[in-house]
Amino acid sequence: MNPRIEQLLELPNVWQASRGRRISSVLPTGYQALDSELHDGGWPDSATTELLTPLAGMGELRLLVPGLRQAQRHRPWLVFIAPPHQPFAAALAQQGINPEGILIISPQSERDLLWSAEQILQSGCCGAVLTWATGLNLTTHQLRRLQQAAHRGQCWHTLFRHPQVHRQPSPSALRIELNCTARGLLQLDILKQRGGWSGQQLILHLEPDLSQLQQLSPDQLPLPVAQFKRQIAPPATTPVAPGSRLTPDRRVVPLLRRG
């Protein structure tokens, strides 16, 4: 090949579809399915990842937990900037994250938020920074500053934003839109990845690990719920006498065995 073309191809800003050079330092997401869809094979370590979520509490933290655990091993401090709720110390400890390494910042204004995010990112002493800017309309210029700060401080930055900004051009290395399916699964739409194709869509089974807990059967429900269930029980599938209980009725089982 022409050596001049070779030189050009060496430049990082020449887009070569999936042939592009991979960033060496990534943080594995902890999910095989996601890693294989990502061009670099993990969360970009020194850049901003935008997660577009309509609301908090749909599995976005569970998505990040394996990465956070990994990041904390490298640098012990994880910073939450303007989180929508409190990160639950006991739950984090259960997931293998030391809550003592967590710093929560609640800035009073947008200016303070951006300033603190920039300072923390470029300080280079924190393992991960999670910023919630769901209610803010960040400009491209502001996004670029955050991205550059993350690059300078070699810090994994996750920026949560509202899905309505997905058309806005963004310098972030990775943009993923998160949605919750009706069945409670997390759906990921990769909107942009640096150096690779985007447009992948995948669904992750990120249900909370509830194997320890028992699935509720209606008779264990607290009283008002059980009553309500009985009333709306569909008669077509299970013909039951009016007034009797819906599913496993302990008073009935012994009779059947006797029979």
Partner: peptide, 9 residues
């Protein structure tokens, strides 16, 4: 034990 929620109100 991994059943606690990550967000607390």
């Amino acid at each position: 034990q991994r059943h606690l929620p990550l967000w607390l109100t």
